[in-house]
Simulated scan of single mutants.
Amino acid sequence: MTAHEPPVPGLERSFEVVADLGPLEDHGTTRAGHRRIIPVVGGTIAGDFRGTILPGGADWQTVRADGSIEIDGRYSARGDDGSLLYIRAQGVRSGDPAVLEALLRGDDVDPAAYYFRAALTLESATRPEFERAVYLASYIREASRVRYVAYRVT
């Protein structure tokens, strides 16, 4: 029997999201930790899926003791063709405490100064190819929006 090596994964650019955000809701320390919720109020998606980000989603964040943030974003997009795409992003934003504070204030911060990545789970009744792959995203946080590029893991 021949031993095979598993394939080395690669990344293939799939789509870019610009999500417009509402005001941060700081819920304080709950049983889950320091809870913050940031509403998703609109935006765009372009690439393998083209359309608009629908209002009504949010990022349910938990702030860790070291200031890092656990990301749990859930929102939908409506394609230019009328189809729907559900996106769930689970990841982390971390960095030097001064950098994280600057992001919280809405300052323009070089994305190389912090780490902001997530694994995406996609659902679509009309685009099953999105459900058959793993996606990773690299983010930039801006004052009133978040931008990211999603990559399909090959």
Rank of each mutant, 00 (worst) to 15 (best):
R64L: 12
R127C: 04
H4P: 05
S76V: 09
L24R: 12
L54E: 06
I53D: 05
G43P: 00
V109G: 05
D107C: 04
L136N: 13
E12N: 13
P128N: 01
G79A: 10
A133D: 04
E123A: 04
V99D: 07
R35M: 07
R36V: 01
A133N: 03
Y139Q: 02
R64S: 10
P9A: 03
V92E: 13
D108L: 15
P111S: 06
S94F: 08
I71A: 06
I69E: 04
V63G: 03
S14M: 01
T44N: 04
Y86K: 03
V41C: 09
I45V: 15
E123T: 08
G91S: 13
P7Q: 01
V40H: 03
D26L: 07
Y135C: 00
R88I: 09
R152C: 02
D72E: 08
D110N: 14
G43L: 01
G51I: 05
D81P: 10
G106E: 11
M1R: 08
R117P: 08
A118H: 06
D96H: 10
S68D: 02
H34I: 03
L84V: 11
S14F: 01
D110C: 04
R36T: 01
G95Q: 04
R31W: 09
R132F: 00
E12L: 15
G47Q: 03
L11T: 15
A143H: 10
Q90R: 15
L120Y: 07
V99H: 12
A3K: 09
E131G: 15
T30R: 14
S124L: 04
D96G: 13
A32M: 15
L11E: 14
V134I: 10
R147H: 13
H34G: 08
Q61H: 02
V99Y: 09
E131A: 12
D48F: 02
D80E: 10
D108V: 15
A89E: 06
I87S: 00
G95S: 03
A46S: 10
A119C: 05
Y115I: 12
I38W: 08
I71T: 12
S138G: 11
G43T: 00
L120S: 06
V109T: 11
H4M: 14
E25D: 11
I71E: 02
Y148F: 13
L11D: 13
G33S: 09
E16R: 15
G67H: 02
F49D: 02
I87P: 00
F116T: 12
H27C: 14
Q61K: 04
V8N: 06
G33H: 11
P128F: 00
A58T: 06
T126P: 07
R36G: 01
G43H: 03
R117C: 14
A133L: 02
A3C: 11
P55Q: 09
R152T: 04
